[in-house]
């Protein structure tokens, strides 16, 4: 190819140079994406430290000059710690319930001889397609009748209904990648069926379980629709609902909202950061 056209010129460059330029371009794209993703989070963090009277000054001080913890103090004066506790219980409940049910169900779907199980497994995904608002109103009526309205167990159960379909489908897929011969060999060696599942299949399915728990945690931690309908008294509120209470009739307390949001976001960072090394370790384990 001749060097007359730009493409021709490009291919005449040494491979090393081309690779370098290519890498820089990739990094540039990555950087742009990162800025777009991280800027709102930074803005949230910055705003939470800005004194309330400066919030609406133009131009907006993107870097707090005289940082203050005023907003945090104001937030802590509310029931935020109680809501925090509720959120942790709620998320932990949803994650546990989803992971356990999805693992057992996914294993059953992958391994047991159930008629029409493929059709069933695919139909499960329909459950995920319902918007929460559509589910939560019948749930409200139903939950009230069985007396678990306005309680954390009740809302955990309801939220699990939205996280479980996809999780179950994911675990079904995941167990299909674990060779059956591992369990068969365990069976011949002397394991009972449950032992073969628990000691052989389960460790190999760990990456899938972690993916499911991250997914259900993300849904539960940020859930709003179902809790807002099923939790009526503010002593049972989760953080997302508490956050909304900072919007008052005639004003929005931006500083406090941002401070509370920061508190809300922090645990997700730690949760995912802690589990990501397990994901990598899990992937190593499945490769032989």
């Amino acid at each position: 190819m001749s060097a007359d056209t730009p493409i021709g010129y490009w291919y005449q460059l040494p491979y090393q140079t081309r690779k370098k330029v290519y890498n820089w371009l990739l990094n540039l794209v990555l950087a742009v994406g990162l800025v777009i993703v991280l800027f709102p989070i930074y803005w949230m963090l910055a705003t939470s430290f800005i004194p309330p009277e400066q919030l609406f000054s133009v131009p907006n001080p993107l870097v707090p000059t005289n940082a203050t913890l005023e907003s945090y103090v104001a937030v802590l004066e509310t029931d935020v710690l109680l809501w925090y506790k509720n959120t942790v219980i709620f998320a932990a409940g949803v994650v546990t319930l989803t992971t356990v049910a999805a693992t057992l169900g996914g294993y059953g779907l992958a391994r047991l001889d159930i008629p029409y199980k493929k059709t069933f497994a695919r139909v499960i995904l329909f459950g995920y397609m319902f918007p929460p608002i559509l589910l939560s109103i019948p749930m409200f009526i139903f939950w009230r009748q069985i007396g678990i309205i306005n309680s954390l167990p009740g809302v955990i159960l309801a939220q699990t209904a939205t996280t479980l379909p996809f999780s179950l489908w994911l675990m079904w897929q995941f167990f299909q990648t674990v060779p059956y011969s591992y369990e068969e060999s365990a069976r011949v060696i002397g394991c009972s069926r449950f032992q073969a599942f628990y000691e052989v299949a389960l460790p190999l399915a760990k990456p899938g379980m972690i993916a499911v728990s991250i997914f259900s945690f993300a849904i539960a931690w940020g859930a709003y629709t179902i809790p807002t309908i099923l939790l009526t008294s503010n002593s049972k509120w989760v953080l997302t609902l508490g956050l909304y209470s900072f919007t008052q009739a005639e004003s929005v307390l931006w500083g406090q909202i941002m401070a509370a949001s920061t508190l809300l976001v922090l645990p997700t960072f730690f949760f995912v950061y802690y589990l990501q090394k397990y994901i990598l370790r899990g992937f190593r384990a499945t490769r032989i």
Binding site: S185, A186, V188, I189, P203, A285, R287
Partner: peptide, 15 residues
């Protein structure tokens, strides 16, 4: 059954 079996894919537990 007290038998032993070797499989084509060996089936050693990777973990």
């Amino acid at each position: 059954r007290g038998l032993a079996m070797m499989f084509q894919d060996i089936a050693l537990y990777p973990h």
